[in-house]
């Protein structure tokens, strides 16, 4: 445990697990949303610690920012107390345990973190890296695929080498937005009918 980076990683992950457990156990939904925000922020620091800056950005912006606000907005319409009932669901626990066990079993086949002999490191990564990284200000003769405009390999992979993936990801996000509009439009448009319906429920 003399490695300070490892120590920070373990501490961050323990804090994240603690935040996730607390979010599960609390009855106060407002508190649970805040705890999930803290959880995302801790994971964002953890990603930064693993040098995955782009993932860290996304986790901080989406996990801790946008989704927290989205859940808070939803809470203003639903109330902030969880319904009374058992806090322990055996089937859910079993599902999570089985899925977790399968995932952990799957990681045993993965190469070690940062293994220089891993297939991804010896197969495609060198090609990506030689074409894009660290060539700012190179001469015309040694120019890479992107004319030295794209030193960030992650962006090069996302937008160019894996352009199809990113295009369909964008299409998925667009579809999600369209679905939200379709599902929530009648609800927003007929406020009178909704209040009448909620009176019937009560």
């Amino acid at each position: 445990m003399s490695d300070p980076v490892l120590l920070i990683n373990v501490l961050l992950l323990l804090l994240a697990i603690g935040a996730a457990l607390a979010a599960m156990w609390t009855r106060d939904l407002l508190g649970a949303v805040m705890l999930m925000g803290i959880y995302s922020l801790l994971l964002a620091i953890e990603w930064a610690n693993l040098f995955a800056m782009d993932v860290s950005y996304t986790e901080a912006a989406v996990g801790a920012g946008a989704s927290t606000i989205l859940l808070l907005t939803a809470l203003t319409r639903t109330g902030t107390r969880e319904k009374a009932g058992p806090n322990f669901h055996p089937t859910a626990l079993l599902t999570v345990l089985v899925t977790g066990a399968v995932l952990i079993y799957g990681t045993s086949d993965l190469p070690r973190f940062g293994d220089p002999l891993a297939p991804a490191t010896v197969h495609v990564a060198p090609e990506y890296i030689t074409q894009t990284v660290g060539k700012v200000g190179a001469t015309e003769a040694t120019e890479n695929d992107f004319g030295d405009h794209v030193p960030n390999a992650v962006t090069a992979v996302l937008a160019s080498y894996r352009g199809y993936d990113t295009m369909f990801e964008t299409a998925v996000i667009f579809t999600a937005g369209v679905c939200v509009i379709i599902i929530l439009r009648p609800l927003a448009g007929s406020a009178r009918r909704r209040t009448a319906g909620s009176k019937e429920d009560a």
Partner: peptide, 10 residues
């Protein structure tokens, strides 16, 4: 998403 969940008229 945030606007619609917030119940803004379409």
């Amino acid at each position: 998403m945030v606007r619609k969940v917030n119940g803004e008229p379409a």
